[in-house]
Design a protein around this nucleic acid. Structure first.
Lengths: 308, 308
DNA sequence: ATCGGTGGTCCACGATGTGGACCATTGCGA
DNA sequence: TCGCAATGGTCCACATCGTGGACCACCGAT
């Protein structure tokens, strides 16, 4: 599930955010082959777990910029599930320490275990994270705009890093943890455009019903956008997600040359006139190549994978 | 259901992170009042979620120093649950992106969402984490031993940070993410000893069955250890958890003077002769006070909590 | 070929999670 | 002061969902 298309929590989203999920096997990716798509073919025997994990993520995203936490009412509204259900799950999450509840305000937020999990996840060989931090900072500094790293995850793109530029203009269209179908947003579109045509077919099919909640992103439009992005050499989001908020993205390829992520820069529409687009695209391409090189290097120096 | 806990993953830790859980209300703590205790009185209607979250944590802990991941067999062994069950849960975790599976080796490890969750959790006002990093480094450097931060969580202590000292001796008794009942381990014991007598009663009752898997930590012994710790002014683990691995811990109090964490230093037995104990205790007390001061400061400068 | 070890699948059974209805408080506006 | 509409929280009959033993395919070492 995902957080609001519109970054702020209270959701002026069109319809109640979809509780839908499912599964989509992508044999093209290594590690992490599958990811939720639409509720149709979800793995059986795990409804409650699915819901719990979605809710956990939701708590994290909604409480991100709100130290006081999220109210139960809000969670029920956004998740679109009955209150009693949401609460039952929350109690379980609290009992395990993944979520905390303020005893005074009864608000919920991520708990200790969530941090621990992140700590544990951080120790994994996060080559991409390592390799991209420098680039992110460089791009943010020289572009003076907010820069993002979007990672491909199945048929979706997840914003995993966000670097504010030195400029005064803040952008709230995308935040760490946000997940959108591939093709929605500049970075996400850059990844999609870098896929093979048949992969694109799969992705579009897999995200069809989810995209129902993103007005103006039907298959036709997305294919057009992909076409344009390929021609231009960069993906441009001309305010389609949030009016006035533009962004430009370029795909990042891993050691095996698969498009696994994207760098993108966001800002107000005025900052994306054609000449500056080329400038930004060049900058992003340079950094994307740099990350690719770093990934290739660290791949070579790694012991062969496979049964020990 | 039950608690397998034969434990050693293949680490030489005595007991793997206990899979058993439950609930224990502590009105003394703010935020995160409850935490899993024993499977007895768990919140109803959340068995599968409970198990899923425990398994998630287990994947993280077991795969910590193993980039290739954990095998299904190992997870079933350690968790003590039927294979089919474990797999079903894993599939759900993978589908949501919290766990990844290597398509070649079929091994599991933490996934992208776990990292995202950590990122989101990191943005919360982690005063303690902030305030303790400097102290951890100082202690590790001057003691030349491995230093830990253990955070109280209900009736348990969670190791949330670990700082290697410059010395060559490595310690594998405790790692980030490990969770043990309060009283087991130096830091954990320091926290327990700082609690009120009635709180100690509650904790001991709550962790009784879990402690069944830790030989030599019955109520009687723990009360003795608490007594000794209070007299000495520090908690000493004289190789009770792992033979030859000693540790010394001191509690850290938050702005409201509640013992919420502990600093501890671990090393081989030889490094804990009485004179050095006093040295270490003094060092840790200084740093503990420093953290307490920092917490008090940041508490004052915080807007009043409560409904906005 | 046999055996012990993987990971993965199936499906009848009943424990488990579900969620509509309900209650207690609170804050706001009349 | 009294509703009234929010909030968070609880209950419990019903049936959906999770359970887990049994089973299969595969692999490598006897």
């Amino acid at each position: 599930m995902m957080a609001g298309v519109s970054a702020n929590a209270d959701a002026q989203r069109p319809a109640a955010p979809p509780p839908d999920h499912g599964r989509a096997a992508r044999r093209s990716a290594s590690w992490t082959i599958a990811h939720t798509a639409d509720e149709a073919d979800r793995p059986s025997g795990s409804q409650s777990i699915q819901r719990a994990l979605v809710l956990l993520n939701l708590v994290g995203v909604l409480a991100r910029d709100r130290p006081e936490g999220v109210t139960l009412a809000e969670l029920t509204r956004v998740s679109g599930r009955p209150k009693a259900s949401v609460r039952r799950v929350l109690v379980a999450l609290v009992a395990e320490g993944y979520v905390e509840q303020d005893p005074d305000t009864a608000c919920y937020r991520l708990g200790l275990q969530a941090g621990v999990l992140g700590e544990l996840a951080g120790h994994r060989d996060d080559d991409l994270g390592e390799a991209s931090t420098d680039s992110l900072i460089r791009v943010a500094d020289t572009s003076t705009d907010t820069t993002f790293l979007t990672v491909r995850h199945g048929s979706y793109g997840v914003c995993t890093r966000r670097q504010e530029g030195p400029g005064p203009i803040r952008n709230y269209a995308l935040a760490v943890g946000d997940r959108h179908p591939l093709g929605i947003g500049a970075g996400s579109l850059a990844i999609l455009s870098a896929l093979s045509d048949e992969d694109i077919d799969d992705v579009l099919a897999s995200t069809a019903t989810t995209r129902g909640h993103y007005p103006g992103f039907d298959d036709e439009t997305l294919r057009d956008l992909v076409h344009r992005s390929r021609q231009d050499g960069y993906a441009l989001n001309d305010g389609r997600v949030i009016a006035g908020s533009w962004a430009l993205g370029v795909a990042v390829h891993d050691a095996a040359d698969r498009p696994v992520a994207a760098l993108s820069v966001a800002g107000i529409a005025e900052r994306f006139d054609p000449p500056r687009r080329d400038e930004l695209a060049a900058l992003l391409h340079t950094e994307a190549r740099s990350i690719h090189a770093a990934l290739t290097r660290s791949q070579e120096s790694r012991p062969v994978r496979g049964r020990p």
